[in-house]
Simulated scan of single mutants.
Amino acid sequence: MSDHEYDDIHDLLVRAPSPDLHYDLASTLTTGRKIRRRRRLAAVGGGVATLAAGAIAFGAFGPLPGGDTQPTGPGTGAASAEILDYRYAVEVGPSGAGRPATVTVFSVDAGKRTRLDRWTANPGVVTRAPKEIAPGILLVVAPARARTFTLVSDDGVIRTIPDAKPLVGTDYQAVTFRLPTETTAGRPSDVIWTDDTGAFNQSGKPLPSVLNPTTEEITFLDTQRRLIISQRPNGGSGSDYPEGSTPWTGDGFDIRSSKVQFLSATFVIPTQGLTATDTTVRWNNGNSTVATNLGKPGSEWTFLRTEREVSPKVEAGDVYPTAVEWTDGSGTRHTEPVKR
């Protein structure tokens, strides 16, 4: 395996310009998958054995659109918001607090509104318009308290930037997505959203997540698409992880090296209601580090974070975690594999 392939990865991870990058997590994940495929092809072509290269893509980006939480209204009265450069408008009809509301979308031309569609939005969930309101435009009505949105297909994150508009005085906000034109993007299958308490799918079902009240960072897990994503008011990061691996993402690197050398990482282990203690992370260089448990103990999934010290001299080759070990309440020791 040639060194320049690792150099490509290193440049992607630690030498990207900042802080004015826009939210393009999907692009980062796509690039990571391309590099992973190239690594596998190189290993096969060279006839050498190698560790399976997992998802190591890391996306760093600027403030998330719609990052401010909108106040929840009393659920009475009607509200309207103009969207897409004032060419369309969304109106939510009056409803009782916590009850469904009628949504109407209009085209706007010279101040005149023409009704295009109407449907019912339900509180606490993301409700999609029955059809695209314009070519390549997906409109959803989401809870007012939602602060970030991630549009996904069955294959992963769809490259698009959400544009949220408050529907003041209601329990809702209008969010539009410009769908990518490439055929590989996949059809939207879910809208993952976060608020100040955690992450949810479009039906309002909670996803495994943990909130850092100090930084306001929310890290959540999507096991269906093998994604682990962190979102915070001023940006976010995330990666996919390979099948058969403990969910994890590397979020710190030794920039002295041209190799991919992780210094810190976040893991999500399947504790299934057990409390994990004595959590340890093993590394391929023979070292081990203590992991800190995040969130409440006794959850189905337990979020962990670890950091390793920077060595005085730059190490040779890649440095990455290989396993997470933990002990349950009965004293049984568990080992969770980490792949990349």
Rank of each mutant, 00 (worst) to 15 (best):
D190L: 06
V191E: 00
T194W: 00
T197E: 11
G198M: 00
A199Y: 05
F200M: 12
N201P: 06
Q202T: 09
Q202F: 07
Q202A: 06
S203T: 13
S203W: 13
P206R: 08
L207A: 06
P208L: 08
S209C: 01
S209N: 02
S209P: 02
L211P: 05
L211W: 02
N212L: 06
N212C: 05
P213E: 06
T214I: 09
T214D: 14
T214G: 07
T214R: 04
T215V: 02
E217F: 10
E217S: 13
L221I: 06
L221K: 01
L227H: 10
S230N: 02
N234S: 13
P242M: 12
E243Y: 08
G244F: 00
T246V: 08
D251T: 15
D251Q: 14
G252T: 10
F253G: 15
D254G: 10
I255W: 03
I255F: 04
K259P: 00
K259N: 13
K259L: 05
K259C: 07
V260H: 06
Q261C: 13
F262Q: 15
F262H: 15
L263E: 09
A265F: 03
A265M: 10
F267G: 10
F267A: 08
I269E: 04
P270K: 09
P270V: 14
T271G: 01
Q272G: 04
G273K: 13
L274W: 03
L274G: 07
T275H: 08
A276Q: 03
T277I: 10
T277M: 03
T279K: 03
S288F: 12
S288N: 14
A291S: 07
L294E: 09
L294Q: 14
K296Q: 13
P297N: 04
S299M: 15
S299R: 15
S299K: 12
F303A: 13
L304C: 10
L304K: 04
R305I: 05
